[in-house]
């Protein structure tokens, strides 16, 4: 891996000229066109835009679930572009923590085992996995629910398990895709408060949403439309938590 000239405020992730094309029949559809973006450590960013704007595609690329058609992507100093599937899986495992709209918990596993799962792919010994997962669940206030299956938990509790699972491996970025989309408004408030706390604790958070109210919690809002970045606004004062 080539050493990069990293400045003091070196970005945690840096996208240059990212383009994503899909083939649809004879024509190509541009989901993303020439996106340049840099996010530094401990930023709280929201990708906002209507459906079809390319925000989900961008999140997939940032989350190393997908590869761009063109452009370069450096994550934590590593060029992700050249990586094969196995290396990408390793990056997802160590650098990214996903939180999904529909929670995506493993239905057969209890809360503790859901949270332990990412550590399995890291080769963490069982005892250590158990300890780290228990800690992560304590942090999201679910210490009393370790042995509950997802279907025995409320929506808010499920999303908190998902957040614990995203956090357990201490990733570089927490990537949340419409994290409150399936929750009622008071539970949504709870979850957003939790993100604020996590941000204060030093985590880098990227929210993907179409909801301006949710995006208002972030400190920086990147607006997408038709596959292009059309706005990048920073706020000095964070929105109400």
């Amino acid at each position: 891996m080539s050493a990069l000239p990293i400045a003091d405020a070196a970005p945690l992730l840096e996208l240059r000229g990212i383009t994503k094309r899909y083939r649809m029949g004879d024509s190509h559809v541009h989901a993303l066109q020439d996106v340049d973006l840099a996010i530094t450590r401990n930023e709280y960013v929201a990708f906002i835009g209507p459906s079809g704007s390319g925000k989900t595609t961008l999140m997939n690329i940032v989350g190393c679930l997908d590869r761009p058609s063109a452009g370069t992507y450096f994550l934590n100093g590593k060029n992700v572009e050249d990586m094969d599937d196995t290396q990408l899986a390793r990056i997802r495992n160590r650098e990214i923590g996903f939180v999904f709209q529909n929670f995506n918990l493993l239905g057969r596993a209890d809360a503790l085992h859901n949270v332990m799962q990412p550590l399995v792919y890291r080769g963490t010994p069982l005892r250590e996995r158990r300890r780290l997962a228990t800690e992560a669940l304590q942090r999201v206030g679910l210490a009393q629910r370790l042995d509950h299956l997802p279907n025995q938990l409320s929506g808010g509790q499920r999303q908190r398990v998902a957040i614990a699972r995203a956090l357990v491996g201490s990733p570089s970025i927490l990537l949340a895709d419409e994290p409150t989309g399936n929750l009622d408004s008071s539970t949504a408030q709870e979850i957003m408060a939790m993100f604020a706390t996590l941000h204060e604790a030093g985590n880098t958070i990227v929210l993907v949403t179409h909801d301006a109210e949710v995006a208002a919690h972030a400190h920086r809002t990147i607006t997408l439309r038709d596959g292009r970045v059309i706005g990048d606004a920073r706020r000095a004062t964070p929105g109400a938590a």
Partner: peptide, 16 residues
């Protein structure tokens, strides 16, 4: 399928 997708997002490799 969904479960496999989740495992992959958590860092499971093809080999896993």
């Amino acid at each position: 399928t969904r479960e496999i997708g989740v495992l992959k997002s958590l860092g499971a490799t093809r080999g896993d």
